[in-house]
């Protein structure tokens, strides 16, 4: 099961080291983009969005259709994010907002229902067959060679944009007027509404923003994924592991955990290929037992 030799060889070999490290970062960044949406929504609205994978899927499918029409990858990424945001706002207004005050179970159920409906809706609209968008022509180039390691330019773009967008949204929440109002409203909605601010709209906008992050991740990755109904599930599970390990509500925590997970995958597949998934769950168990608030999370009072 354990292949220490292979792992040591890899550490001693610059080609392998560079390739696998880049792999870890690439996997991590995309995970981070999805997980930052989960953690943003939880951190402010205290809702665990179990439907996040569905928005990832919506983003990917919307990008696929937009790419078919425009042939422009960047426009399709935008389309994916916008589509996810629109569906997200509708979902928040029509369903989630009605269970803000309910317990975790009710929220879980509403999300579960939404995922079921979304998967079937995608099947009705786009069909059950897997779809492939194909790699945009500008990225159909030979990979870069860095110190013997191999790094595809497309993945550099992917990781870069994921990081940039996630950081931008943090800045938005921390320092903009919008962000301040939303956080204040989450603390005391009555007080903020007394100031003449329409709190529900701000909540919906924030929820939409979180979903847009997932949608954008789906759209960004669409060229190298096969699109199928239900594709959001595995990404949902991984982004929850990231969120829990990093700390529910902490975006820097999500970044740290996403990179940690990325490296577990990339070096794990060299050193302990059969236990990569198991290792991720084990990390989650250890964190929950010894530090339930996560690596960088704040201790929640109930």
């Amino acid at each position: 099961m354990l292949n220490i030799d292979a792992l040591m060889n890899c550490f001693g070999n610059s080609a392998c080291l560079v390739t696998q490290s880049a792999t870890g970062l690439i996997i991590g960044m995309l995970l981070f983009l999805v997980a930052s949406g989960v953690t943003l929504i939880f951190g402010v609205l205290h809702v665990v969005n179990f439907a996040h994978g569905a928005f990832y899927m919506i983003g990917a499918y919307a990008a696929y259709s937009a790419y078919g029409v425009t042939g422009n990858y960047y426009l399709s990424v935008l389309a994916g994010a916008v589509a996810a945001a629109i569906v997200g706002v509708l979902f928040e207004r029509l369903a989630i907002s009605r269970v803000y005050k309910e317990n975790l179970l009710m929220q879980l159920l509403v999300c579960y229902a939404f995922v079921l409906i979304c998967d079937d809706a995608v099947k009705i609209i786009w069909g059950a067959e897997y779809l492939a968008m194909g790699i945009p022509s500008e990225f159909r180039v030979p990979p870069l060679r860095i110190a013997g390691g191999v790094v595809p330019p497309f993945y550099l773009f992917l990781a870069g944009s994921a990081l940039a967008v996630a950081i931008l949204s943090v800045i938005l929440i921390r320092y903009s007027r919008f962000g301040k109002i939303v956080r204040a409203a989450a603390e005391n909605a009555t007080m903020v509404s007394v100031l003449g601010i329409r709190v529900p709209l701000y909540f919906a906008a924030l929820f939409g923003l979180g979903c847009a992050l997932a949608g954008m991740a789906g759209a960004l990755a669409a060229p190298v994924r096969s699109l199928t109904p239900g594709m959001g599930l595995s990404i949902l599970i991984e982004s929850f592991i990231v969120t829990v390990i990093g700390g529910m509500g902490s975006i820097p925590g999500a970044l740290l955990a996403a990179i940690l997970l990325g490296f577990t995958r990339s070096f794990g597949s060299v050193g302990f290929p059969l236990f990569v998934d198991g290792a991720m769950f084990l990390m989650m168990v250890v964190i929950l037992v010894f530090r339930p608030q996560g690596l960088l999370g704040e201790r929640m009072v109930r």
């Binding site: 696998q20 792999t23 897997y130 492939a132 993945y155 994924r225 595995s234």
Partner: peptide, 30 residues
Amino acid sequence: QPDYTENITNLLNFAPDALYSCLWGGDLVA
């Protein structure tokens, strides 16, 4: 599995002459 990056880079490290795969359907496409 949606992302095969770690498997692909692993294959690069093996540097074989030939590869066999029985992935199928959407997985093979990705």
